[in-house]
Design a protein around this nucleic acid. Sequence first.
DNA 1: TTTTATTAAGGATTATTTTCTTTAATGGAA
DNA 2: TTCCATTAAAGAAAATAATCCTTAATAAAA
Lengths: 215, 215
Amino acid sequence: MSSENKKKEGIVPEPSLRRMPCYLAYLKLAKRRNQEYVSSTHIARDMGVDPTQVTKDLSYTSIVGKTRVGYEVNTLIDVLEDFLGFRKLDKAYLFGAGSLGNALLHDHGLDQYGLKIVAAFDIDPKVVGRTIEGVPILHVSEFEKMKDKNVEVGILTVPAEFAQDVAQQMARGGIKGIWNFTPIRIRLAEDCVVQDTSLYAHLAVMFNRMSNIKK
Amino acid sequence: MSSENKKKEGIVPEPSLRRMPCYLAYLKLAKRRNQEYVSSTHIARDMGVDPTQVTKDLSYTSIVGKTRVGYEVNTLIDVLEDFLGFRKLDKAYLFGAGSLGNALLHDHGLDQYGLKIVAAFDIDPKVVGRTIEGVPILHVSEFEKMKDKNVEVGILTVPAEFAQDVAQQMARGGIKGIWNFTPIRIRLAEDCVVQDTSLYAHLAVMFNRMSNIKK
DNA sequence: TTTTATTAAGGATTATTTTCTTTAATGGAA
DNA sequence: TTCCATTAAAGAAAATAATCCTTAATAAAA
Ligand SMILES: NC(=O)c1ccc[n+]([C@@H]2O[C@H](COP(=O)([O-])OP(=O)(O)OC[C@H]3O[C@@H](n4cnc5c(N)ncnc54)[C@H](O)[C@@H]3O)[C@@H](O)[C@H]2O)c1
Ligand SMILES: NC(=O)c1ccc[n+]([C@@H]2O[C@H](COP(=O)([O-])OP(=O)(O)OC[C@H]3O[C@@H](n4cnc5c(N)ncnc54)[C@H](O)[C@@H]3O)[C@@H](O)[C@H]2O)c1
């Protein structure tokens, strides 16, 4: 009888999820300052957000705060990292070892946040066969043969015109989550999550806000 | 009498701004297929969004659609690129030439979307003085002396603990828009825009949605 | 011990964003 | 020509998210 509700219940709003890594970063700085407890009031003041928004966001996790004291910093860090999936390391394939793909391959920061690129795929003979930062670049045709059940995340950095096709290929190959850096909206079956991260979109917002200020 | 309203009026909602680069990408593909006109109905169907959302979003620009026909593809591309600020090239400084900063320096895609990194700043003697992809890496102390009025955009890729300080330095040096890749919420005066782009936030959302599907 | 100030948490209210509905226009078919 | 199907655009309604308000708890001060 609650199966229709089940869909909604347990669903965390995207705005809240997006703020959580910010709280995490703030807490890590607080830990360095040897703070044992930190209250939503202080988090909110320091971060320039609303205090009740902080408690609401954190209430989606299992953390319980102490009245008049706040949240235990160490516990909250653990809870958040766990909740956000930053603790376990997900293996990922990268599709499209071009300019942006190369940039991501050169970046070591992601390892600390639960993501490890184990192989890259491309079609350009000039890059296929090479190795970047220890990650082999294979031809996309190799992907079909691999079917590694341990790799569920795919990073999509191919040119826009191939985005939809490659995404479908990824889904067929068992990829369950696509981190999509192209500005294309991917249409796929329900069992594959597509997370859009358009850098251009952020640039567009920044340019617009800048021109607003100049009146 | 309308000065209180002036603040609101002309303000484009962030969700709309974020969708616009997607429309642009879609239109460029349509142009390649030699489509002269494209309607909101078709854009919406292909992209998996609501048709009225498309018209609402596009109504923030100067474009006017033709009843029963749609929008002229070429005009809409021009209008959108102009509206989003992708036409004129903004010069940018990069602060923090570490793993992510290097990645951005190696990436040539941004040039096409209105952003050109002309110099990078760091404090690490191991990188200061070097050149990456033609971009010189200078010591941050050099920034103070430069005061180049033509550079209004700053890219922030320093470790979290220095983010606030470096951001303040940037604002003092005349930077009007900070593209913030750190997970820290920057607190600054009103005349400097801060655009947060936390890759971790997107990862967090993707991991969460993936675990939801697994039930 | 009593009071005070601060807090988490839950519910109510307000603001924002999305979706639905209606209207008027118009190219193309009959 | 007349009708029909499709569209942009504007306004209404619904859904979602942010903010405000209240309550109960409790450390610290008096
Ligand atoms: N470069 C950026 O700054 C940037 C920023 C945001 C988004 N993007 C988007 O990311 C995507 C890639 O951008 P880029 O600048 O790296 O382009 P790019 O042309 O440098 O790289 C694309 C790579 O994908 C490969 N490729 C093409 N078809 C393929 C296929 N079927 N399977 C696997 N690989 C294939 C190409 O050989 C090439 O190496 C584009 O959609 C772009 O819009 C780029
Ligand atoms: N690497 C990633 O994948 C990634 C993704 C998202 C966000 N981030 C964020 O981006 C930031 C940088 O990450 P990273 O992995 O590149 O770290 P990093 O340590 O590799 O690079 C940081 C660089 O900043 C320099 N620096 C330090 N203090 C400075 C100062 N005062 N002025 C100028 N430069 C200074 C350091 O010398 C170093 O070169 C962090 O805040 C991180 O959270 C990183």
